[in-house]
Amino acid sequence: MDAQSNEFGTARVKRGLAEMLRGGVIMDVVNADQAKVAEDAGAVAVMALERVPADIRRDGGVARMSDPALIEEIQATVTIPVMAKARIGHFGEAQILQAMQVDYIDESEVLTPADEAYHIDKWSFDVPFVCGATNLGEALRRISEGAAMIRSKGEAGTGNVVEAVRHLRSITSEIKKIISADPAELFGIAKNIQAPYELVSEIHRTHRLPVPLFCAGGLATPADAALVMQLGAEAVFVGSGIFKSGDPAKRARAIVEATTHYMDPTILLKVSRNLGEPMVGINADEVDVKMAERGW
């Protein structure tokens, strides 16, 4: 008897998984061993990729979707959600990732963009997508294309949190502006930030972004995680920051604790002690390639 009709791939189901990841840490991993370390440390999900952003930056060349065999090995190793990256606009890669049943697809500026004009039509997929954004207009354009989660871009692979902070502050301050605006002003705001009026109006009504807002790009310490959570991020992505550090397992665990207890400096102090060498990091103005400028 199948009297009820089960519905798959709805916006609520896609955004729902992002809701469940809130208050958690999503960690970049390049093999099954790292995935295990991440899960052991309390990650809510892993991002499976061949090279972390710091290495993509160092190696140069074209960065593409990872080999499916690598992603499958990681899927077989952990019980938490596994995400993977497709190039901006590369729906061919996204179709392959959906066929592998990855839990979330990151249409990511960390990879080399495949299309200079269009992002992926994310509504046509049942697997949810996360996209990066540097400001609210960009976030809302991605949501109108079907993104079910937004992450502030930051500058991946630098170990420098300054760009993540800039993008997060930009998004949250524009949200505050919309909330306090007169309804008549919403049309002008939508036009100025190049976003659909309906989404601007929704923020005015609900006082929040239509999908969860996470933070990524340059986080390297428990204090970084606490900082961005206090600035309004609902969860954090940590890329190179963990496995490019001296003691990944310990640092990963500390960042998980810091993301939960971000308002409790006593716990932050405790977990920040003796973490070993952090990743070295690069200053934002010394970076040759600004990944955050990819996508629009």
Binding site: Q4, S5, N6, E7, F8, G9, T10, R12, V13, G16, L17, E19, M20, T79, P81, Q98, Q101, V102, D103, Y104, D126, V127, P128
Partner: peptide, 30 residues
Amino acid sequence: NGFGRQIKSFEADLVVSGIDGPPVRAVFIR
């Protein structure tokens, strides 16, 4: 994760004993 990975997540209408009125819309996520 008994229903499968995220792509197997779904919504359904349920009749819940002790709850009157229209069916309860249930969202199942992994």
